[in-house]
Write a protein that binds this DNA or RNA. Structure first.
Ligand SMILES: [Zn+2]
Ligand SMILES: [Zn+2]
Ligand SMILES: [Zn+2]
Ligand SMILES: [Zn+2]
Lengths: 121, 121
DNA sequence: AGCACAAATGAAAATGATTTTCATTCCCAT
DNA sequence: ATGGGAATGAAAATCATTTTCATTTGTGCT
């Protein structure tokens, strides 16, 4: 197993703690950092193994990586203009926990998004 | 837009209401049905559009399709065996509504899923 | 410094699901 | 029967991710 390249983690942080491998790679390129796509993938995987980052899936199936320590939040997205608001999810956290316990699930995570039409649209 | 081939839906049912496009395709082949992979993909997508089936993602990113009851509900999914429990989401409904109002969004919908490891795994 | 050996790196090829293209076949209304 | 639009599927294209493998880099030892 390989150790994570620290520049990958630092870039993921800078990306807002939420990005796909391809996005991390492109971001590093744009910033003039010399790194291979393979190393980005390997580093992210290693960070996942070490439970330093979380991985989940976009709707299109692409894996996105998220800093675990980062404040966990959810999104309110406008279907028309794409505008996004980050929102608090305390109610969801509780709901997920209760439901999981009730059905004997462990190591649970969750996804939750709200989408609609914003006031400007 | 294309209409769903009824044999695809019937096969998905026979598969236990839970399978990937590739699996539906292989299953139909094994049963001697003549169909193209493209048609399987198109039919499943059409069923998703019509909200007759749900789509979610395996850990490896492959899309899996699932027959869904008609009432709005959410899911608790085992990341290991794929076992799914349909759960009630009253807390989510309220949360989505409050958040949307708070930010001036209208026509809002939401997605929410919980995933973890079930007691059998 | 000089050497040996392991770990890290990255370019290129392989993989595998999904989408796109496009020519052919079906179906149905006139 | 016939024309036009919908459905079909083989093959090619796409795209994220993984695998291979040769090269580079780092580290400890003499
Ligand atoms: Zn908007
Ligand atoms: Zn949350
Ligand atoms: Zn399970
Ligand atoms: Zn709901």
């Amino acid at each position: 197993m390989s150790r994570s390249n620290p520049r990958v983690l630092s870039t993921l942080e800078r990306a807002g703690g939420f990005a796909s491998a391809q996005e991390v790679y492109r971001l590093m390129q744009r910033e003039g950092e010399s790194i291979g796509l393979t190393t980005v993938y390997r580093s992210l995987q290693s960070l996942v193994n070490d439970k330093i980052v979380d991985v989940l899936r976009r709707d299109d199936g692409e894996a996105i990586y998220r800093l675990c320590g980062d404040a966990h939040h959810h999104h309110l997205v406008c279907k028309s203009c794409g505008d996004t608001v980050e929102i608090e999810g305390g109610a969801i956290e509780k709901w997920a926990k209760v439901m999981a316990e009730e059905h004997g699930f462990r190591d649970v995570g969750h996804t939750a998004e709200i989408f609609g039409i914003c006031s400007k649209c």
